[in-house]
């Protein structure tokens, strides 16, 4: 017994190293396949506030550019509004809307690692919940993964765990949007059947199969495509509309019917 204790004491550093490494390796491997850790993420009080402080300072440098982008979007939306059958913003019946939109600022961006998470400055206090869709003026950005009182982390489309339903615009052929972690301007659309006629430059938009995003939110254009190894589905490279390295303002989308849809799907799956 004495010798065992002596042995442990002699190699205590090695044991300590082994133990701590084991713990962190378990966490690492888990983070590769499961959701982000609920307790340790950058939406928490300390990390969120540090990023918020830094974003408060650095956001001044991009104000002019950001302003132009927002005015351009307003211009586009005005054009759509005037050319549609709706009489004006006042005539929209807010009770019958399916989607609610909320704006937020990005306080931490990341696009260089294989699993990128983005932190935004809206949290539970403002009504943000898990699995809300996040878009920018140009296109899709990601899905809310964890929330704290004042902040939330977003799983970016540039995340190897991300899997979003997408389709080719004006058709009903849909596939899954994934990322191979090689280039932050290009994501991959898989599971599009071989018989679909494709052209480089076709627009890819979100599909109707998800309860997170509304249909027809722009994602990107087809950059190149080829058949996969089984030669029955396409692997399509999609160039994103968003410049993932330069994002300031984002919109959160809340589907008001989401709970109903999910409850219905759950009962159907159980039967």
């Amino acid at each position: 017994m004495q010798r065992i204790i002596n042995f442990i004491l002699r190699y205590r550093n090695a044991f300590l190293y082994g133990f701590l490494t084991f713990v962190s390796l378990v966490i690492t491997v888990r983070s590769h396949s499961y959701h982000q850790s609920k307790f340790f993420n950058s939406s928490k009080w300390l990390t969120g506030n540090v990023y918020n402080l830094s974003a408060n300072v650095s956001s001044y440098f991009g104000l002019r550019e950001e302003n132009t982008r927002l005015v351009q979007e307003n211009e586009r939306l005005r054009k759509m509004l005037f050319n549609s059958n709706v009489d004006g913003p006042e005539s929209i019946d807010t009770l019958s809307l399916n989607y609610e939109v909320m704006s937020a600022n990005l306080i931490k961006n990341s696009f260089a690692s294989p699993r990128n998470y983005i932190t935004i400055d809206k949290g539970e206090k403002h009504g943000v919940t898990q699995d809300m869709g996040v878009i920018t003026t140009k296109g899709i950005l990601g899905i809310v993964e964890n929330t704290s009182n004042n902040f939330a982390t977003v799983q970016s489309v540039l995340n190897t765990k991300s899997n979003i339903n997408a389709k080719i615009k004006n058709t009903n052929y849909f596939g899954s949007l994934v990322w191979n972690s090689e280039d932050y301007t290009v994501v991959q659309l898989v599971d599009i059947p071989r018989l679909v006629p494709l052209v480089v430059g076709d627009t890819i938009v979100t599909g109707a199969m998800s309860s997170i995003f509304p249909e027809n939110i722009p994602i990107g254009v087809i950059k190149k495509y080829d058949l996969n190894t089984s030669r029955s589905f396409y692997n399509i490279d999609v160039e994103l509309f968003n410049d993932m390295a330069n994002i300031k303002n984002v919109y959160l989308i809340m589907n008001k019917n989401k709970e109903e849809i999910e409850a219905l799907e759950a009962t159907t799956a159980n039967e």
């Binding site: 090695a14 190293y17 690492t28 340790f40 950058s42 699993r115």
Partner: peptide, 20 residues
């Protein structure tokens, strides 16, 4: 650093190995 950059436990394992 892992918590800040949402890369849970990558920096931890690397730092531990360097320290050891």
């Amino acid at each position: 650093i892992d918590i800040f950059s949402d890369t849970l436990a990558l920096h931890t394992v690397a730092s531990l190995t360097v320290a050891y």
